[in-house]
Design a protein around this nucleic acid. Structure first.
Lengths: 256, 256
DNA sequence: GACTGTGAACACGTTCACAGCG
DNA sequence: CGCTGTGAACGTGTTCACAGTC
């Protein structure tokens, strides 16, 4: 096991890419490590121990080491990880060595903001097309890109080698857009519309729903309030807090 | 143990709030169920079987039933769930019976979009304040709200009973803003800045990072490509569009 | 007969703690 | 000695399959 394995190192052409299939949870954290590593590189660190990188990324060091070990990692015992090397390694695994082209569909409120978001460009992506179904919006220029009509998607997809589609339309339009994206061969979709998309096997969809995030926070607020719901805590809490907390079984019976 | 227990039903005052501590994974799905239920209610359904609600929410029915059972649910065997009742139940658990006030800090690109996003209002929240540190932005009116200076936060937090803070500033300003929010008693933060926030115990932070989402998709793209990257049929990929999407996975072959 | 609620089995993810290397 | 890499223990979340109820 402890053979040093460097599966598909960045530089090496010809070798099999050999992407180990990483645990999904690990994949979701790699980008965070990458961001932290870039920060470290900028502040002149050449090497970093798991503890340091972990805290910069907001995880514990055991988790970090386990995650990195899945990539057949580049750490040196007694020293830590080589920052530059690890950046290359993670960028390679995430497929960021090529700058993927993104098509953004729906240039309303949110779409506008996304079109102008420079975090995409700076972190490995290129917004290659802005699309909308509303003729009134077609032709508008945002950040140097002209909005095109969604019907032009098939041509644009080929011309620009679109790899990822971002849906920022209203919910009722989203499924139709997803179908159109899939039809032109897009297999990765980031969906901001508050609805479930159905797509064929092999297409990946990630969903971001801002209201859902707030609702999850709301739950925790509610819970925190219900726990502190006793003394003179000027809590903005519930207007009518039931006094009785005593009923023994009321709480108990929930889990059954 | 299958006593029917309705812990802290919405309408009933006097009952113990009795928030069961739901598994985190369940909490994260409740908002999705809620959205699906609202759709069902609008289309005239009074009742729905677990199978139906599950598919509307994009999960499988076993998971749905298990999730709902944690709330001491309201299903009827042989029939399904009462839509209206379940909506009340979930809204109660999520703490959506009170319309929580949100302070949005950072009205740049993304902040603007968030300020104008009506999904917040329609799903239980009220944007009560827009704040920014840049004097040039203070005074601007967005969607009927005037942007205030961040230094006014302490007063505004009290006046408006701010329950949740949303950070949409650049990364380097985010920690400072988080500290300010915490200082005025905010215990729930939604962070759009690409950085880790450190906050005291008891404060919940959720993070949304758009570039990270894309990078995760990129990984899967990379992997899909590396799997199909074998035999004679090189990279003709995109140019030859598969006829239609007959659910057969011709799609897979998006070459690099 | 149809559907919920749930124990029991399983899969996945995290943490611990330490062996082994530099 | 310091730090990584990793088995083994633990905890959480998911799925199965069926008993129980309407």
């Amino acid at each position: 096991m402890s053979q040093h394995r460097h599966p598909g190192a960045p530089g090496r052409a010809g070798a099999v890419p050999a992407l180990p299939d990483l645990p999904e949870a690990t994949v979701a954290r790699l980008p965070e490590y990458l961001r932290a590593l870039h920060n470290l590189a900028e502040t002149g660190h050449e090497t970093v121990p798991s503890e340091g990188l972990a805290s910069a990324a907001g995880v514990n060091s055991a988790k970090l080491r386990k995650d990195l070990s899945h990539l057949g990692s580049y750490g040196t015992r007694g020293v830590g990880y080589d920052v530059a090397l690890l950046i290359d390694q993670i960028e390679y695994v995430l497929g960021l060595t090529q700058r993927r082209a993104v098509a953004l569909v729906g240039v309303g409120n949110l779409g506008h903001a996304l079109a102008g978001y420079d975090g995409f460009a700076s972190r490995g992506f290129r917004i290659a097309a802005l699309l909308d179904a509303d003729p009134a919006r077609v032709g508008e220029e945002i950040n140097g890109l002209v909005v095109r009509h969604i019907d032009e998607l098939p041509r644009i997809a080929v011309e620009e080698s679109i790899a990822i589609g971002v849906i920022a339309t209203p919910a009722q339009a989203a499924q139709r857009v997803a179908d159109q994206l899939v039809a032109v061969g897009v297999t990765s979709i980031l969906n901001f519309a508050p609805c479930v998309l159905s797509v064929p096997e092999g297409v990946d969809v990630r969903k971001v729903d801002l209201a859902i995030e707030l609702q999850i926070l709301s739950f925790h607020e509610h819970r925190k309030a219900s726990l502190t719901a006793l003394p003179a805590t000027g809590g903005s809490a519930l207007t009518a807090l039931p006094g009785g907390f005593g009923a023994t079984d009321t709480q108990e019976a929930i889990g059954t």
